[in-house]
């Protein structure tokens, strides 16, 4: 039964020693140890978070780059297409203008040709009239002298005219 009866002296020393031990260890061991552990865990957590954040940022950056690249490519294509269109348009316009000008020149030439022809025809008509008048005059002049020779003249003139 002795075993089950707590000894007063041991109780006294135990309360004293355990109390002191609790006080000393809490203040000089547990507090700094748990704080250091917490600090280290926070550091690790922070580093992990940072790595995750960086990873996400890197991915974002990469997708941004790709987007940028695609945009640049699209822009380049657009510029090229635009330039080509402009060039085509300019060429087409030039061609149209040239055709138009040519046509205009041709039309003008034709008109001039027409005018000149008309003038020539008029000239020819006038000369024919003059010539006819000359012939008629000569014929009239000869008729007065010799009828026979007159006829011969006319015949000769006509033949001459036909030969012309």
């Amino acid at each position: 039964m002795d075993l089950l009866i707590p000894d007063i002296g041991l109780l006294f020393w135990m309360v004293l020693v355990f109390g002191l031990l609790y006080f000393i260890l809490s203040k000089f061991a547990w507090k700094p140890i748990t704080e250091s552990l917490k600090e280290r865990e926070d550091d690790i957590q922070k580093a992990l978070d940072m790595a995750e954040k960086t990873r996400i940022e890197m991915a974002k950056l990469q997708s941004d780059n790709q987007k940028l690249l695609a945009e640049a490519r699209a822009e380049r294509d657009a510029i090229l297409r635009g330039a080509k269109e402009t060039a085509d348009r300019v060429i087409a316009e030039a061609r149209d203008k040239a055709t138009e000008e040519g046509n205009r020149i041709i039309v003008k030439a034709r008109e001039e040709l027409q005018t000149e022809r008309q003038a020539m025809v008029a000239e020819v008509k006038r000369e024919v009239i003059e010539l006819s008048l000359d012939i008629a005059e000569k014929v009239l002049k000869r008729e007065l002298s010799d009828k026979k020779s007159q006829e011969e003249l006319v015949k000769g003139l006509v033949a001459e005219a036909r030969l012309n």
Binding site: D7, I8, G9, L10, F12, W13, M14, V17, L20, L21, I24, L25, A29
Partner: peptide, 18 residues
């Protein structure tokens, strides 16, 4: 209030823990 065998062991363990 003697420093018995148990008390001595108690003190020893306290010193060891510290």
């Amino acid at each position: 209030f003697s420093i018995t065998k148990n008390v001595a062991s108690l003190l020893l363990s306290a010193v060891l823990l510290i």
